[in-house]
């Protein structure tokens, strides 16, 4: 098995664990919201930088889910 397909198999095995899929999803969304907040620092709602706070929270939640995942487990 080549290095590339080995990496793909490893990724697929990880992704089969639901915690990995959920973690990856929220990590990406968290990063996107943080980026949106940095691009628009004046986006403040009721005194809160909503994209920043929500992005940070989702990013941390995603990272924790990723860390708790195992290959080929649910």
């Amino acid at each position: 098995m080549s290095g590339k397909s080995k990496l793909l198999t490893l990724f697929l095995d990880r992704f089969a664990d639901l915690r990995f899929a959920i973690g990856l999803f929220f990590s990406i969304i968290g990063i996107l919201l943080l980026a949106a907040s940095l691009l628009n620092p004046n986006d403040v709602v009721v005194g809160i930088r909503l994209n920043f706070v929500a992005g940070a929270f989702m990013g941390v939640f995603g990272a924790l889910m990723l860390l708790s995942s195992h290959p080929e487990k649910h």
Partner: peptide, 10 residues
């Protein structure tokens, strides 16, 4: 009413 672009998508 509340959500800025980004969180509105979520």
């Amino acid at each position: 009413h509340y959500y800025p672009s980004g969180l509105l998508g979520v």
